[in-house]
Simulated scan of single mutants.
Amino acid sequence: MNTVFSVLVLGAASAVAYAAAAVAQRVAALRVAGAHGVGLRRSGAWWIALLLNALGAVLHTAALRYGSLVAVQMLGVLTLVAAPLLSSAVLRQRLSAAQWSGTGLTVAGVVGLLALVPSAGESRTLDSGELIGVVLLTAVAMGVAVLVAAVGRGATVASLSYAAAAGVAFAAASALAQTAVLRVTGAGSGTFAATVLVVGGVVFLAPAGLLLCQLAYRGGLEAPLATLTLVNPVFAVVVGVVVLGDRYATGLMTVGLGVVAAVAAGRGVFVLARAETSGAPEGSRPQVAAPGGHFWGIRLRRSAAAVVVGSRR
């Protein structure tokens, strides 16, 4: 199979799986926030989300075998296209014009940014020094984001900060997973200690990202999802520049276009967050707990409290 085609197919399939998982996590978050206080472990939507995230991770890891980290992360933008459509169907929620425009702006901004910073090469393994650099950079970035979420004012700030931390966790896990899969398939080499660090990092970061997503989705879907989707590839680029020594064009036009793309992406996240916190028309509110409602074959119980669109991912 052609390498480029493999990356496109596997990356796109992974994005759709992650989008479905995001919607499932949003359903679980809405149910847990209800009056009955249903725990995550008792939520069918939560277990579906775990399975979909696992499927997305498998497809994502397979894509990393054939393409560079940044190229594969770029395909994650498709999640922003698939998630609103799935959310609209599953949550019985009509998407507003603001939500569509916010999604469009974010997708355009992310695609523009990544088009200006193309991958510096093919898939590759990290040596021991690079692995340590990735771990330290990830710890700092995640620590700052979680701290902002903890001390910041307002549910929206917390939601977007948790989503940013999740994006960092997933990007770092992808970088480590690429090294792991290349070594397993014989395309890369490294010491036993480095291999242990890679596996340990993936085992920690993947669940951490999942839990951070769950915290972010308590306040909404589109804005946290847009934030995560934006941070994920951007942090992959930061890892490439800071740790791996990648270099990209820095001409005046490139920088100018990069600023425009960044502003578009940021504006998109702002529009999505404002649309969620301002509330949707009554007829467009999610009917997660409606009588007889089902989530992919799993019956959802009626919630005693009205479902409120919040500030989560």
Rank of each mutant, 00 (worst) to 15 (best):
A172C: 01
A120E: 14
R65Q: 15
A226R: 02
A275Q: 11
V23R: 04
Q178R: 12
L86T: 03
V135G: 09
G11Y: 01
V9I: 03
A83T: 09
A28V: 03
A33S: 11
A89Q: 02
L116N: 06
M1G: 10
G186P: 01
L225K: 05
A194C: 05
L160W: 01
L244G: 02
A187D: 15
L75R: 06
V234N: 00
I48Y: 11
A139I: 03
S87T: 00
E276I: 01
S119D: 15
A22Q: 12
L131W: 06
R92A: 10
L136F: 14
A24V: 13
Y18G: 05
A173S: 09
S96V: 02
V16N: 06
L40W: 13
V107E: 09
A12S: 09
A158D: 05
V117L: 15
V134P: 09
V307W: 06
V181A: 11
A158T: 04
Y162E: 12
L137Q: 07
S161P: 09
V231R: 08
V90C: 06
V7M: 04
W296K: 09
S159K: 11
V117G: 04
G143S: 04
R218E: 12
S101W: 07
V81H: 05
V241P: 02
S128M: 12
L64K: 12
A63N: 06
T61S: 11
V7P: 05
G190A: 09
A171S: 13
S87L: 12
A57T: 11
V271T: 13
T106S: 13
L86V: 05
G266K: 09
G209S: 02
T3A: 15
T195C: 00
L211P: 06
V168Y: 04
V140H: 07
R42P: 10
V168F: 07
H60L: 14
V27M: 08
L40S: 01
V255Q: 09
T103E: 07
A175W: 03
G219Y: 00
L221K: 07
F204K: 00
A236Y: 08
A141W: 13
L95V: 11
R313V: 15
A273Q: 13
A21I: 10
R285N: 01
A15S: 13
V198Q: 04
R94C: 05
G56C: 01
V58L: 07
Y162A: 05
T195E: 14
V203E: 10
L91W: 00
L160N: 02
G188C: 07
F295Y: 15
L300W: 00
L105I: 02
A108Y: 11
W100S: 10
Q287W: 00
A20C: 10
A49S: 12
V199G: 04
A166N: 01
V269R: 07
Q178T: 00
V181L: 15
R65Y: 15
L225T: 08
V7Q: 04
P291N: 04
S43L: 11
